Structure formats: structure tokens, C-alpha cells
Amino acid sequence: MCIIVYKPQGKQLPSTDTLRACWDNNPDGAGIMWPDGNHVNIKKGFMAWPSFLEALEEVTSSIDVASTPMALHFRIATHGAVVPGCCHPFAVKDSLAKMRMTEIGADVGFMHNGTLAGLDTNDATSDSMAFVKAVLVPLKDMSDDFLSDKRALRIIEGSTQGSRFLIMSKTGTVRLFGNWVKDHGILYSNKNFHTRYTYTPTLFDNSIYDAWAAFSNLDESLVRYGLFEACKDCSMLFDCAEYLPICTDALQASEMVASWA
């Protein structure tokens, strides 16, 4: 499970400790994007914490952080190889090669947290990249400003499959899709910005109790709670029960469990 950290205009970035927790919980590579009026600037493919921190410090020393919206992405791979080019963000361009570039300017940039089914993926093409090519690029081509086009926004909202999306334009417009967590003015795509924690179910914690109870009758109850048989071995079970199911089918659930192994 990845995490997106969105710092709106007027806010400062989270503490280094918080960002380190995001990295430790999602260590398959990181990326940064921010607008400057002419481009959305994308830097990504940082596969070690020191290299990410050095890049972030370089970026923040060259811009007015408080007045600039910024988005950071920390990845756990579910589709696509663990390589710099598969890290987020992605330039919304009709070229997989350009999406894989670790430093690029674009009119629009995209970040994704979750999994998307029904797309043409392989080791070099993640579900996020396939979504950009299949959905976002055509929408962008059909509208001068698709982030202000209500028709395009409805299509994107209907395509999330329970994921969280962040789309940023070169002018600083940012659109968020899905359910987000707000903490001290910063928006996170899930609760994975905390140091790794363990839930303790109680009699009053109905959603978690129901998630566990579902396993007593696999045939009838699992689907109702958005769960699959593999979920019982997944580190994200309580997150899904309390917040929002991540996986949409049994294969994705199995892949998610494998990513934590």
C-alpha cells in the first residue's frame, strides 16, 4: 500500500520524522512534484531514504515552500517492477517512456494510491501508468482544462475502484479523488504516515469485529465486507476494515499479502 502526502498552498511540509515513517512503511521508491506556472515538475526514482531526503532538501531550498502546493509519493509495488521508472508521480503524456522518466516537466502530473484492475500491465508498466495512458491522456486531449471539466472529473471519480488519486496541473490546480486523511492541514491518502502500529480490536470497534467475523463463513460473508480469503494474512486488514478496502479482487488481495512478506 503506497501513500501520497499532499501539502496545500499555505502549509509547511510534515516533519522529517513523519516523512521517514512514510518511507519506512512504503520503501519501494519515492517521488516529488510541484508546479511553477509553466510546468508540473516531477522528480522521482529515489530508492533509498538518504537520496530522497537530499532531493527534497534541494527542491525546498529553491522554492517558496509555503506558497507552493507539493505532493510526495512513497511506493509499495503491487503492479510493475521495483525500479525508479515505476515510481510516482507520472507525467500525463501519451508515452510510457516519458512516464518512466525520473525527471521531467509536464502540463499535468498524476499520483495513485491503491490498485486498479482491468488494465494492461507488466513489469515495465504499472496499473497507474496504464491508467494514465488509457484514461487521463484521452480526457486531457478532449478538454483544454480537464481538471475544471465536470464531465472529465466525473469519469475520473467513477474510475477510482476505491483508490486515491492526486492530479496536479502546472498552474497549481490540484484535484483529489477518494477518501483522504487530514492531519494538521496536510492530506494523506491513508493512515500509513504513522510509525507502524497495531490495532487492538474492542467490543465497540464494530467495523474491525465484523471484518474478523466475516472469516467464520468464507462463502457468504467475505464479499459483503470487501474481503477475500487472503485478507486474513494481510497486514492491512484492519486498515481496510476501519477505513476503505484496498483490493477489488482475490488476485489483488494475494498480491498485497505477498508485498508484505
Rank of each mutant, 00 (worst) to 15 (best):
D149S: 07
D123P: 12
A106I: 03
T115N: 10
L153K: 02
I155L: 14
G158W: 03
A97V: 13
G118C: 04
P138Y: 04
K133C: 08
N122D: 15
T121F: 11
G105A: 08
F131R: 03
T121K: 08
V108T: 12
M99E: 12
S128G: 09
F90S: 05
M101H: 07
R151D: 15
A91S: 05
F146M: 01
I104K: 03
V137E: 01
K150H: 15
A124P: 07
A106R: 06
D107Q: 11
V92Q: 10
G114Y: 02
T125K: 15
H112A: 02
A124R: 12
L116E: 07
A97M: 10
S163D: 12
A91E: 01
M101G: 09
I155P: 06
S95E: 09
V135A: 14
R164N: 13
D120A: 13
G162W: 03
A97R: 11
V132F: 02
R151Y: 13
A117P: 04
I156V: 12
D123N: 12
K133T: 13
S126L: 04
S159Q: 04
I104C: 05
G109S: 09
R151G: 12
F131Y: 11
A91F: 00
G105E: 10
S128M: 07
T115G: 09
L166E: 02
M101C: 10
A117W: 09
G114S: 04
G162N: 06
S126V: 08
T160Q: 04
T102G: 14
P89Q: 09
M142W: 08
M142Q: 15
D144I: 03
V92D: 07
S159M: 04
K133Q: 14
V135S: 10
N122R: 07
H112L: 02
T102N: 15
A152S: 02
R100F: 08
A106D: 14
R151K: 14
A117H: 13
M142K: 14
V92F: 05
M111D: 02
I155C: 11
L153E: 09
H112K: 01
E103Y: 05
I155N: 12
T160K: 01
S126R: 03
L147Q: 01
H88S: 09
I155K: 09
A152W: 00
R151L: 11
D120V: 10
L166D: 01
T115K: 08
C87E: 06
Q161Y: 08
V108M: 10
M142T: 10
T121H: 08
G109I: 02
K133F: 11
G162T: 03
L136D: 01
K150L: 14
M99S: 06
M101K: 07
L119P: 06
D145C: 00
S95I: 11
D144P: 10
